[in-house]
Deep mutational scan, measured.
Amino acid sequence: VIAMPSVRKYAREKGVDIRLVQGTGKNGRVLKEDIDAFLAGGA
């Protein structure tokens, strides 16, 4: 999974398994917005 360390930390704090999140950034990078969208109700 491609993600910046700050995004990985954010996901950990929110209790999200970053491997389950679909990245929308360049080359499938997971963004902070992707974590929020995942929490809001889905992949």
Results as ranks from 00 to 15, higher is better:
4 M>E: 15
29 R>M: 13
8 R>G: 04
30 V>F: 01
32 K>F: 10
34 D>P: 00
19 R>V: 07
21 V>N: 00
9 K>A: 11
40 A>F: 11
13 E>V: 10
37 A>F: 10
1 V>M: 08
6 S>H: 12
9 K>M: 10
26 K>G: 08
41 G>R: 08
34 D>C: 01
20 L>T: 08
31 L>D: 05
6 S>M: 08
39 L>P: 04
32 K>G: 04
10 Y>I: 03
33 E>A: 14
36 D>R: 05
4 M>F: 15
30 V>G: 00
30 V>K: 04
25 G>M: 03
5 P>K: 15
12 R>W: 15
43 A>T: 14
40 A>E: 12
19 R>Q: 09
20 L>Q: 12
27 N>E: 09
5 P>D: 13
29 R>I: 09
38 F>D: 02
4 M>T: 15
33 E>S: 15
33 E>K: 15
29 R>W: 10
32 K>Y: 09
26 K>N: 10
31 L>F: 08
16 V>T: 03
22 Q>N: 12
39 L>A: 07
7 V>I: 09
33 E>T: 13
39 L>D: 04
31 L>Q: 08
8 R>E: 10
28 G>I: 02
13 E>Y: 11
29 R>L: 11
43 A>M: 14
37 A>E: 09
17 D>M: 05
5 P>T: 11
18 I>M: 06
2 I>D: 09
35 I>T: 00
23 G>M: 02
28 G>S: 06
17 D>T: 04
1 V>T: 10
8 R>T: 07
32 K>H: 09
12 R>S: 14
6 S>T: 09
12 R>H: 15
19 R>W: 09
27 N>Q: 09
8 R>F: 15
20 L>W: 10
24 T>R: 06
31 L>G: 05
34 D>M: 01
8 R>P: 03
6 S>R: 10
36 D>G: 03
30 V>M: 03
17 D>K: 05
31 L>I: 09
33 E>Q: 14
18 I>V: 07
18 I>S: 02
27 N>H: 12
40 A>K: 12
37 A>M: 12
28 G>W: 05
16 V>R: 00
28 G>V: 02
41 G>K: 11
9 K>Y: 08
20 L>G: 07
15 G>D: 07
15 G>K: 08
38 F>H: 09
7 V>H: 02
13 E>T: 10
41 G>W: 13
29 R>N: 08
42 G>A: 14
19 R>H: 09
24 T>G: 04
9 K>G: 06
7 V>N: 02
34 D>F: 00
32 K>V: 09
11 A>D: 00
4 M>Q: 14
35 I>V: 11
14 K>T: 06
35 I>N: 00
4 M>P: 10
21 V>Y: 01
17 D>A: 06
40 A>N: 13
29 R>K: 09
27 N>Y: 12
32 K>E: 06
29 R>D: 07
35 I>R: 00
31 L>P: 00
22 Q>R: 15
11 A>S: 05
36 D>K: 05
9 K>P: 01
43 A>V: 13
24 T>L: 04
29 R>G: 07
5 P>L: 12
38 F>A: 07
19 R>E: 11
37 A>P: 01
2 I>G: 06
40 A>M: 14
2 I>H: 08
14 K>D: 01
7 V>W: 03
12 R>D: 12
19 R>L: 09
30 V>L: 05
30 V>R: 03
30 V>E: 00
4 M>Y: 15
42 G>E: 13
25 G>L: 03
39 L>N: 05
24 T>K: 06
31 L>Y: 07
14 K>S: 07
12 R>L: 15
39 L>R: 07
8 R>A: 08
2 I>L: 09
21 V>D: 00
15 G>S: 07
14 K>P: 00
11 A>P: 01
27 N>D: 13
39 L>C: 06
10 Y>H: 05
42 G>Q: 15
26 K>Q: 11
28 G>N: 08
24 T>F: 04
5 P>V: 11
2 I>P: 07
36 D>T: 05
20 L>P: 01
27 N>K: 11
43 A>P: 13
8 R>N: 05
25 G>F: 02
19 R>F: 09
14 K>Q: 11
32 K>M: 12
2 I>M: 06
1 V>N: 08
1 V>K: 08
18 I>D: 01
23 G>W: 03
14 K>W: 08
25 G>S: 04
17 D>W: 05
6 S>I: 09
28 G>E: 04
27 N>T: 05
10 Y>P: 01
38 F>V: 07
14 K>L: 12
18 I>P: 04
41 G>Q: 14
3 A>Q: 05
29 R>Y: 08
33 E>L: 10
42 G>W: 11
26 K>M: 11
38 F>I: 07
10 Y>V: 02
3 A>F: 03
1 V>Y: 05
14 K>H: 12
27 N>I: 05
27 N>W: 12
34 D>E: 00
26 K>R: 13
17 D>R: 04
38 F>P: 01
20 L>I: 09
34 D>Q: 01
6 S>E: 12
9 K>H: 09
10 Y>S: 02
36 D>E: 07
27 N>G: 14
6 S>G: 11
39 L>F: 07
27 N>F: 12
39 L>Y: 06
20 L>V: 10
36 D>A: 04
24 T>H: 06
20 L>F: 11
33 E>I: 13
30 V>S: 00
25 G>P: 01
19 R>Y: 09
36 D>F: 04
1 V>A: 08
35 I>W: 00
16 V>Y: 01
10 Y>W: 04
20 L>K: 13
23 G>P: 09
29 R>P: 01
27 N>A: 09
27 N>P: 02
33 E>V: 13
12 R>F: 15
40 A>I: 12
11 A>N: 00
38 F>S: 04
16 V>N: 01
36 D>P: 01
26 K>S: 10
13 E>L: 15
8 R>Y: 14
1 V>G: 08
31 L>A: 04
41 G>H: 13
33 E>Y: 10
30 V>Q: 02
40 A>R: 14
40 A>P: 05
42 G>I: 15
25 G>I: 02
41 G>I: 13
1 V>R: 06
16 V>D: 00
12 R>N: 13
16 V>C: 06
24 T>A: 03
5 P>H: 12
10 Y>N: 01
12 R>Y: 15
19 R>A: 11
28 G>H: 07
29 R>T: 09
2 I>Y: 05
28 G>R: 07
2 I>T: 10
22 Q>G: 08
3 A>P: 05
13 E>M: 14
15 G>A: 06
20 L>M: 13
14 K>Y: 07
28 G>L: 05
12 R>T: 13
18 I>R: 01
4 M>K: 15
20 L>R: 12
24 T>Y: 03
3 A>N: 05
9 K>L: 11
39 L>S: 06
25 G>T: 03
2 I>N: 11
43 A>D: 13
12 R>E: 15
28 G>F: 06
18 I>N: 00
17 D>N: 09
7 V>P: 03
37 A>K: 13
15 G>C: 07
14 K>G: 03
42 G>Y: 12
32 K>A: 07
19 R>C: 06
14 K>E: 04
11 A>R: 00
26 K>H: 12
23 G>Y: 02
15 G>F: 07
27 N>L: 09
24 T>W: 03
11 A>W: 02
20 L>Y: 11
10 Y>L: 04
34 D>I: 01
15 G>V: 04
6 S>D: 14
43 A>S: 13
43 A>I: 13
15 G>Q: 07
36 D>Y: 04
22 Q>V: 14
29 R>H: 09
17 D>F: 05
22 Q>H: 14
15 G>Y: 06
32 K>N: 06
19 R>I: 07
28 G>T: 04
42 G>L: 14
12 R>G: 08
24 T>E: 02
38 F>M: 07
3 A>V: 08
39 L>E: 05
21 V>R: 01
16 V>F: 02
12 R>Q: 15
17 D>E: 07
9 K>T: 08
11 A>L: 02
11 A>H: 01
29 R>Q: 13
11 A>C: 06
37 A>N: 13
22 Q>W: 10
37 A>D: 10
17 D>P: 06
4 M>L: 15
10 Y>T: 02
15 G>I: 04
9 K>C: 08
8 R>S: 06
25 G>H: 03
8 R>I: 15
21 V>T: 03
2 I>A: 08
22 Q>I: 14
29 R>A: 13
21 V>P: 03
5 P>Y: 07
34 D>H: 02
22 Q>F: 12
36 D>I: 06
29 R>F: 08
39 L>V: 10
8 R>Q: 12
21 V>W: 03
4 M>V: 12
15 G>T: 04
22 Q>L: 13
10 Y>A: 03
34 D>T: 01
42 G>T: 13
31 L>E: 09
11 A>K: 01
10 Y>K: 02
13 E>A: 12
20 L>D: 09
16 V>P: 00
22 Q>T: 14
28 G>M: 06
24 T>S: 13
10 Y>M: 03
17 D>G: 03
34 D>R: 01
1 V>H: 07
33 E>D: 11
7 V>E: 05
26 K>I: 12
18 I>Y: 05
26 K>W: 11
43 A>L: 14
36 D>V: 06
